[in-house]
Design a binder for these strands. Structure first.
Lengths: 198, 198, 198, 198
DNA sequence: AATGAATGAGCCTTCATTCAT
DNA sequence: AATGAATGAAGGCTCATTCAT
């Protein structure tokens, strides 16, 4: 039983516990005490390692965002063409990891948190902008700049829309979801190409 | 002058105060005390009329949903063709009344509330299903049943997506938003007609 | 049992309880909960009426200061000559009301509080300056300005000194104490008059 | 190189840190953790060496008292006559070492501590009695026993009074302070001699 | 019709203290 | 000799809720 170097272990456990707790109680009533209990430690320890409730939530948020980023990167690895890259981003968005109930519930909580916490807001905006630039970058190779922005905007919205509907337990099939978003992309591109070439 | 018939006045005032309070504090920290103060009454009175905090929130939710329904009905009034009706639904969704910051913040809160309250969940689902059936009904006249469901699903998601992005203060232009959703509809219909006729 | 207009009664009771609690536990460990219990109410009510612990302490401080001020005013009422007025101030300082163990313990607490609270500091300085100006004013009629300030300074210090020693339970006789301070005053005045007339 | 003989070094550092911490935060909020951090060690070590918070404070108190005693002894070294000795005690009381803000803040803290801790109380009383006997002893050579006690009492009070006023940041000039106390002594002695010879 | 009074329950946070390493 | 790990206990504060008037 190691008695040193516990910090990373505890941090990880607490972050995991936070996400699961949010998933379990649906974001309301999420309490430092309950998170700590779920992680098998005292609430004092949670404060010791994170400094406060907000920072625990923020850390959980960062963790989810990081995992999402990693998933995107991973999916992107095998993609060659811009279109493949765009499809990869869609796939990553609905990757099982990111689309789990607890994770989706966490997203919802973070959206709410972002209404009052500058830090949470910044975090969420950084993520949103990165997604947006990824989309715009690849779309830019397939159509003009204005269309790229427009389509990126639509895609991001439709993805967020499916997320929030998932949070509401309007369970939809993952593959159906992906195909709807993917189809959106294709139709928009076809239409954009028509517009451009006319 | 005995004050009679105050109940509907107070209820209305409290519901309005609830929505504004949610809009003001961003859904967190919304307190019966603050709602009551905003409505100019004591918190005890709020309990007296509604029975509890959850029911106050539910009433506010019903109010927003009702207003939304009225807006839809109003927009639908002048619509003749199925396509016009679908456009009317889109227009109503982004009608200024429904797209105000406080209202959008309230939606977010209700989504969260729905995670824990059966009543809130039911309310939200009733609304979602009504929207869905409206969409499916009109789409059904323009394409086959499967396609209708699919397109309705996509439309609802993209609308919800724009809502949540609005809640995050990713302010987008109302007309742009409408045109993106509307375009989505048209492209899907064109595509569906191709599929059907082949 | 009156159920309205409780506020002043509760405030008074809580302030009294604060002073007694400070006296009882010796200023350390003084807790909102204990104060409230001593006043026969819940700690929530104490917060309701005062807003927070600091403000409760501040209110107790103001009460003691006010009582002190009233005692001074009362003693001053029968005083005619400047010398009588100065003696009256001394008498008031060691008046039974102000020299009770709980009250003296409260003073000590307030001194400590003043180290960290701007409000407490200001309060204490207002009191100190008022005492100082009273002393200087009357001394100024008996000697020159410089001497007046000097003697006032000495008198205030010796009074404070007896207070703190009282807080330490170095019980000294009240009359002895008064006579020592009074004697200080007389000797200083005699000396000052010598200095001036030479 | 095994670290041996660290104990006295750590103890000294912790005591010094305690005094400075009290001076820095104004006696409230003084925490074992902060003291330890200031001393550059873990709070566990502080407990290891002292056994508990109270004992750390007590040790700091003893240190200040000892330093004060040393200062008195040092000043007394050059004093020949009783009067010179009395003046030496006054000088020592306001010696720069003892009149530093941190030291004065510590005194205030100890006064508060003494309200609840038997040990602190005893310590403070030992110091007070030693000072008192010193004063009485020398005064006894200049006047009768009753007068000696009386004057010693006044002197001690006036010194304490200046201390507490210093703690309240009513900064007074050191030399002025000394001269006021010294003058007190002289006037009292003159008066006492009159009384005796009459 | 309306409210002031009052509280219990619960949450976040801090801190002295212990223990194994 | 020294510390990271960990916690129990307690405190300040908030809030939904009840009740008598």
């Amino acid at each position: 039983m190691p008695k040193v170097g516990m910090e990373p272990i505890r941090r990880k456990a607490l972050i995991e516990a936070t996400i699961n707790e949010i998933g379990a109680v649906g974001s309301l009533d999420v309490t430092v005490g309950k998170i700590a209990k779920r992680a098998g430690v005292s609430s004092a320890l949670a404060h010791h390692y994170f400094g406060g409730k907000d920072q625990i939530l923020l850390a959980a948020m960062r963790s989810i965002l990081a995992r999402f980023g990693a998933n995107v990167k991973h999916e992107l690895a095998g993609a060659k063409t811009p279109l493949q890259r765009l499809e990869a981003i869609i796939a990553a968005s609905f990757h099982a990891d990111n689309f789990q109930p607890q994770v989706v519930a966490s997203w919802l909580t973070f959206y709410v948190l972002a209404q009052n916490s500058k830090d949470a807001q910044r975090l969420l905006q950084v993520y949103a902008q990165r997604l947006q630039s990824n989309l715009v970058y690849d779309l830019g190779k397939l159509t003009d700049r204005d269309q790229a922005h427009r389509i990126a905007n639509g895609m991001a919205s439709i993805i967020d829309g499916f997320y929030i509907r998932q949070a509401l337990q309007t369970h939809s099939d993952r593959d159906d979801t992906i195909s709807i978003v993917s189809e959106y992309l294709h139709l928009q591109l076809k239409q954009a190409s028509l517009r451009t070439h006319t």
